[in-house]
Design a protein around this nucleic acid. Structure first.
Length: 818
RNA sequence: GCCCGAAUGGCGAAACAGGUAGACGCAAGGGACUUAAAAUCCCUCGGGGGCAACCCCAUGCCGGUUCGAGUCCGGCUUCGGGCACCA
């Protein structure tokens, strides 16, 4: 052991040891409890950022901790290698996306290794490799045959100048980011996966995941948005039947107009005879697909001239075409009840349409008109001005209105989802090819297993945003697998969420060239702990849960849910905002490791905040973390110089000190269980502070065993967090026969924790007035008496009558006086 | 616009299950060591009053529940995440 702590040498020594011993390569071992710890794999953007460092340190800490507890731990890593930035980089630099991606992967792999992360590198996955995506293609052909994959028209953002589809990210203020042209909405045929068929199961499954943060489950529930309501059919003169869906059939009597989407057949029919409607439809083409854009835009509409008949009153209602009604939701048509819906209210105010209140709060006695004078009343209540439904509650009215509609043959009860089927096709080059061949005679034919994978040509030069595949006859010209005639391959590629939806399973069977998954997956799955950013709370995590069910129904996995426990980490901020190149507030992990070493980076990141919270970067605090490691090293040198005697402390001072150490140990063990790693580090710092005082004293047969035991505990508690320095100190001090990664996890000694007396806080009317020391076995009466006897307490009680005394054992006494 | 979170000293935070608010660290100030600096070590450190013992105020804002609220409930404000083609 050197005098000075040299992170460079320490980290090289530890990493060499793990590599030579193949410490993190694992196989299935039915004799030990397994633990599969997974961090969300990175997109290979070029370099790691602090968010990655945080994510992967968290995963590594959990993995190493479970390993020291004796579990068979799998911790794999890979790269989510398909995606838009590769095409952007290619366009800019003229480098093929494949080359750019593979270069980035090798650079980032090296960075991950230098962080000391205990990965089983044998299992590394890059999703852009045909060995990986062939199984995605294979599964897709099966889903197609089952009817779970289908083709339908769906809107995309279209730039008329570049003649390409734009991602939402590429639309800035409604214009193309490249050429500033106003983006249009265009319907094109797309591939979909029928996730809505699994909606009920995805919803129910959330209740089986106690290891997930409640907020994530709530977000997913709201995203699926299962709601019960009614489908109502209105008769429209000169058009036919117009169906709408509503969650508020109780407000049917308050409907004053109907609204349809601009793309609705009724609006198309109206446009043929009414120039104003044609004009409006034309204006609606200039619209984005992003929900946030649609929801915040100005709500506009136009009278189609059609008139609908109210199914229960026979009243005539105008039918508008409106930009806030979307063809993709429900029926593409709504009944508007301005009195009880904010959006309908605003629209009615703008176009001078009547507002008819029909629901008032239960105990409301005033004029219903006054209730909705300034805005809609959206709560439930009691029906008024609703003919036969007057006096019913909203809940009762929903049932009775539906019954009335059914009797009239004009409607029915229905469940509606907010969730839409998953559009998995992208009009892009750098993605997994969709394994479908279009034949004029045979239609859409899935590529036979023997012809898989459909390889993506990697030798392309990207010029503009358009998919390079559509311009490659050598790719798309192919014989039809059914009839042998000339056919054309699908040139769209898969959404990259496809690859990230099943990678967790493939790590288990990474080298199987004959099957997607095998028996090894049954051993490791489900993932015991999944860790990643909160920004993935809905899309990625919902798609992965869906895919797991698809895999299960294909007989490939046995579990219903892929991730038993989920940890959503907060973002890494600097000066209060997210680190980003555009803000120029990034901190490169590389420089940090060069200056202080990986252990300092890991320690700072674990200490600065609990995992779920955002983490504020601080260069000064990083230096502080480094100082702690230097102190730990110096302490280790003292311990190494003391004789390794194993006698129990006889002196009371030393047994008290040992009690304090075991108290901190108990706290640290509890905080590991809670994943409060910041307070684990705090407890370790306190232990080091105590041990340093002992180390400052001369060697003694009574103090040295406490010093040695305490240091051994601190090293093991810190080993998952700062694995390099603890590895070298463990060996240097000679604390065990094997490496620290295989050392037994420490346990608190109950004997050391036992106390003869306890300190209680005494409050008078909830204000802290004194502290008393009582024997550990003192009863309530004795505690009460002693508290009242205390002079500071007596002063505040002052002969006033004691109304009540609250005694919380081991904590406090509260004397309530009047 | 809709859904989900968060807010505690100069700063990052702690407070297990409603029970001493500010552990642990950073910064700052003072001191020791040194020819000097760096490094290291020691002391002070939420605000106000008091010589002191001690007292008052304080967990974004307004209310409520409770013997007792940073923690639970209702209403706001500000900031952040997501909104289906960024990953």
């Amino acid at each position: 052991m050197d005098d000075r702590y040299s992170p460079r040498e320490v980290e090289r020594a530890a990493q060499d040891f793990w590599k030579q011993a193949h410490s993190f390569e694992v196989t299935e071992d039915p004799g030990r409890p397994k633990f599969y710890c997974l961090s969300m794999f990175p997109y290979p953007s070029g370099r790691l950022h602090m968010g990655h460092v945080r994510n992967y340190t968290l995963g590594d800490v959990v993995s190493r901790w479970r390993r020291m507890q004796g579990m068979n731990v799998l911790q794999p890593i890979g790269f989510d290698a398909f995606g838009l930035p590769a095409e952007g980089a290619a366009e800019k630099n003229g480098v093929p996306p494949a080359r750019w991606t593979y270069d980035n992967i090798s650079y980032m792999r090296d960075q991950l290794e230098r962080l000391g992360l205990g990965y089983d590198w044998k299992r590394e996955i890059a999703t852009c490799r045909p060995e990986y995506y062939r199984w995605e293609q294979w599964l897709f052909t099966r889903l197609y045959r089952k009817g779970l994959a289908y083709r339908a028209a769906a809107p995309v953002n279209w730039c008329p100048t570049d003649a390409t589809v734009l991602a939402n990210e590429q639309v800035v203020d409604g214009r193309c980011w490249r050429c500033d042209t106003k983006v249009e909405r265009r319907e094109i045929p797309q591939w979909f996966l029928r996730i809505t068929a699994y909606a009920d199961e995805l919803l129910a499954g959330l209740d089986t995941l106690p290891g997930w943060p409640e907020q994530v489950a709530t977000m997913q529930r709201n995203w699926i948005g299962r709601s019960e309501g009614a489908e109502i059919r209105f008769t429209v003169a000169g058009y036919g039947s117009l169906a709408v869906f509503t969650t508020r059939p109780d407000t049917l009597m308050g409907a004053t107009y109907l609204a349809v989407a601009a793309e609705h057949p009724l609006a198309v029919a109206a446009a043929a005879v009414r120039p104003a409607v044609a004009q409006f439809r034309e204006e609606c083409r200039v619209m984005q697909t992003a929900e946030a854009a649609v929801e915040t835009m100005e709500k506009r509409g136009v009278d189609t001239g059609f008139r609908a008949t109210h199914p229960l009153t026979g009243q005539t209602l105008p039918v508008y075409a409106a930009n806030f009604v979307l063809m993709g939701y429900g029926e593409g048509a709504v009944m508007a009840v301005p009195a009880h819906d904010e959006r309908d209210f605003a629209f009615a105010a703008r176009y001078g349409l009547p507002v008819r209140p029909v629901v008032v709060p239960m105990d409301y006695a005033g004029d219903p008109r006054a209730l909705v004078a300034d805005g809609a009343y959206t709560g439930p209540g009691c029906l008024v001005d609703s003919g036969p439904f007057d006096g019913l509650s909203s809940a009762q009215a929903k049932v009775q209105v539906i019954a009335a509609l059914e009797a009239a043959g004009a409607g029915t009860r229905r469940v509606q989802l907010r969730l839409r089927d998953w559009g998995v096709a992208r009009q892009r080059y750098w993605g997994a090819p969709i394994p479908i061949i279009y034949c004029e005679r045979c239609g859409a034919v899935p590529v036979p297993d023997a012809d898989l994978p459909v390889r993506l040509p990697e030798d392309v030069v990207i010029t503009k945003g358009a998919s390079a595949l559509a311009g490659r006859p050598d790719f798309y010209e192919t014989p039809c697998p059914e009839c042998g005639g000339l056919a054309r391959r699908e040139t769209d590629t898969f959404d990259t969420f496809m690859e990230s939806s099943w990678y967790y399973a493939r790590y288990c069977s990474h080298d199987n060239g004959q099957a997607m998954l095998d028996a090894r997956a049954a051993y490791w799955l489900p993932v015991d702990q999944y860790i990643g950013g909160i920004e993935h709370a809905i899309l990625h995590l919902l798609y992965a849960r869906f895919f797991n069910k698809l895999l299960r129904d294909e007989g490939l996995v046995a579990n219903d849910e892929p991730f038993t426990r989920l940890l959503t980490q907060g973002m890494v901020l600097k000066e209060g905002s997210k680190m980003s190149k555009s803000k120029g507030n990034t901190v490169d992990p590389e420089g940090l490791i060069a200056e202080y070493g990986a252990d300092t980076a890991r320690l700072f990141i674990m200490f600065a905040a609990p995992p779920e919270q955002s983490l504020e970067w601080s260069d000064e605090a990083v230096a502080g973390a480094h100082r702690f490691l230097k102190r730990l090293w110096a302490l280790g040198r003292v311990v190494a110089g003391r004789p390794a005697v194993a006698t129990a402390p006889t002196d009371e001072r030393y047994s008290n000190l040992r009690g304090l150490l075991h108290g901190l140990l108990e706290q640290a063990l509890r905080d590991y269980e809670r994943y409060h790693f910041n307070t684990v580090v705090a407890a370790c710092m306190s232990m080091v502070n105590l041990l340093q005082k002992l180390a400052d004293e001369p060697a003694s047969p009574s103090g040295d065993p406490v010093l040695r035991e305490g240091f051994s505990i601190v090293l093991r508690l810190l080993a998952p967090i700062v694995p390099h320095i603890t590895h070298v100190l463990w060996q240097g001090v000679g604390l065990g026969t094997g490496p620290i990664i295989d050392a037994p996890w420490p346990v608190a000694d109950a004997k050391a924790l036992r106390r003869d007396t306890v300190t209680l806080v005494v409050q008078v009317n909830g204000k802290r007035r004194a502290e008393i020391v009582v024997t550990a076995d003192a009863d309530r009466a004795a505690i009460e008496a002693q508290a009242l006897r205390d002079p500071a307490v007596a002063k505040h009680v002052e002969g006033r009558p004691v109304a009540k005394v609250v005694v919380v054992p081991g904590r406090l006494v509260n004397i309530v006086v009047t």
